[in-house]
Design a binder for these strands. Sequence first.
DNA 1: CGATCTTACGGGATTCGTAAACATA
DNA 2: TATGTTTACGAATCCCGTAAGATCG
Lengths: 297, 297
Amino acid sequence: MNLSTRQLRAFLALVDERHFTRAAERSHLSQPAFSALIRAVESEAGTRLFDRTTRHVEPTPEGLMLAASARRLLADFEGALAELHEHHALRRGRASIAALPSIAAGWLPPLLARFHAEHPGIALHVRDALLEPCLALVREGQTDFAIAAQGADMAGLATELFCRDRYHLVCRHDHPLAERARVRLADVAGYPLVQMAGSSSVRQRLDQLARDTPLATAFEVEHLATANGLVLAGLGVALVPALTLFQFRHDELVTRALQGRELQRSLYLVRRKGRSLSRAAQGLYERIREARPLGTD
Amino acid sequence: MNLSTRQLRAFLALVDERHFTRAAERSHLSQPAFSALIRAVESEAGTRLFDRTTRHVEPTPEGLMLAASARRLLADFEGALAELHEHHALRRGRASIAALPSIAAGWLPPLLARFHAEHPGIALHVRDALLEPCLALVREGQTDFAIAAQGADMAGLATELFCRDRYHLVCRHDHPLAERARVRLADVAGYPLVQMAGSSSVRQRLDQLARDTPLATAFEVEHLATANGLVLAGLGVALVPALTLFQFRHDELVTRALQGRELQRSLYLVRRKGRSLSRAAQGLYERIREARPLGTD
DNA sequence: CGATCTTACGGGATTCGTAAACATA
DNA sequence: TATGTTTACGAATCCCGTAAGATCG
C-alpha cells in the first residue's frame, strides 16, 4: 500500500479539471503518462475513481470521497513540512539554556535580547542554576545546553571553551589595596574576605586557587548582590571573576585584576554528547559562541 | 515536493529502531538502499533528521517533530483508504432510491429488508414520489436511482427495464364481472370506475390504453387504499397494475388480469446517464435487478 | 578489530514521451 | 469527423542489491 504526494496531487488535478489533457499539463506530464498514473492510483485505492468516456471525465462517488481525504492529507502534509522549514529557518522553535547565576544575570541577557530581536519566533528559556544543577539539566535533556564550569563528572557531556574569566579583587577605594596597581593573591591574604557560599563554583574554584594561601573569610553569602553590599559597607573585600563585576559597579568601589597566570576560572558551553541540538538551540549556541568574551589567558 | 507513504514508513521504522540494518529489514530493503531512501527523505524535508555515527543512530529534534507528524499522516491516510475499502466491500455507505408509491409501499420493502440484513452497514433511504418528482430526484442527484415509468423528458437519464406490470380488474366477488374468467378492457367500459388521480402514472398509462374505450369514471382518488375502500363498498371497480394488488387483498374482492397484449405498464430502473453509482447504490441496484418481477409480456 | 553506515556500480524495474489506435458526441 | 483517451513501444530514469570502502567504539 503505497502512494506518493505527487500521485495525490495528480489525482486532485483530475478531480478539479475533469479533463485528462489539462490535468496532465498542470501535473507537468504527458497525457498518456498521466493516464497511467491515474490507473495506478485507482489500483492502489482498489476501486474505480473516475467515470470516463472520451468526451467526459467525472469522479465516481468513491473518487469524491478520496478527493476530500486527499485534500486534507496534502494540507496536513504540507503543513508539517512548512513547520519543519520554519524551524529550519529559525523562524520558529524553542531554545533553552542553563547558566551559572553570574552569567545568567550579567553577560547573557543582552545577548538574548539581540538573539530575540533577530529571531522573534523562537521562544527562549533560561534557567539560572549552580554548577551541578546546570550540568544535571543538560544531562537530563531539560535544557539544550549550558554555560558553566567543568563539574566532577562530565561523562556524556561535550564541552567547548566559552571563556577564561580572571579573578578580580573588589574593595572600597579607601581600602589599602586600592592604591596598588598590581595585586597578587598573597596580597589579599591578610584582609577580611567576603566569600561566596561553598556551593558556588566561584568559591570552589577560588578554594582550589588559594590552596596554599590562607584567606581570612569574614562572611559567606549566597548572592553577589549581598557581597556587593558588604564590601561597600567596608566589612571586607571580595575576590570574584570578571564576569561578575557588573554587580560591583559603584563609585566607591575599585576592582583590580589578580596577577598570576592561573588566577582565573574556565567556563564552557556544555551540551549532551552525540546528540544534536534543535535548529533553534543550535542558532543560539552559535550566536553565543560568536559573541563569547574570550578573556585573558 | 514529493514523498511517498513508503518513505514515511521507512523513516518511522528508523525512528523506532534507531538502527539502519534492522529498520532496513523491517522495510524489506537492503541496508544501502534504505540508507539512500533516508537521505532522500532528509533532502525532501530540507533538514537533517538523524544524528548518526557508525555506532549510534538517533533522530534529531526536527526528526522527532517530523516523526510525530508522519505517524498522524500515515494513520489518516490508512484511515481514508480503509474507509474506501469499507465502502467498496459494501460494509459501509449510503444508498438512496426513489420509487412510485405503489412500488415503494408494496414490492420494495421486503427487498430492502433482505438487503439491509446482508449489508447492515449501508444506510438506506427511500423516497416515494409520483413519476415526475421521481425522475427529478434522479436528475438532480438527490437520489441514486429510481423505479419509475418513462417520463415526458428522459434526457440525461439511463433506463433499464424493471418489469412489465399488467393491469388487473379489481371488483367485489358479487360483481357481474367477477364471474368472467377472462376480462377485456371493453368489458369494463359500462361499469362505474374508481380511478386514481390524473397525476398518477397508473392513471396516465390507463388513459393511454383506454384512448378508444370510453370508461365511466365514478371516483378519482389519490391513494390506492382509498380505491380499495370504495371498491369494497361496491361503489365501483378498479383497474390497476399487478404490483398494486397487495392493496386489494380481501376476501370479498377478486382480481382478474386484463386480456390484451398492450394492457400493461412498463417500469424502469432509472439512473443518471454517464455517471456511476456509489458502490452501495450499485449493490442495491444490482440486488433489485436480480430480484425484479419480470412480469408478463 | 568488529560492527555498522556510506559510497560505487551494474542490472532491472518503473515511468516517461511519441506515435498510433480507439471511442464517443 | 473531431476531440480526447487508451494502447504500444522504445528510451531515459530511478531504484535496488552486491561489493568495496570508511568510520567509530
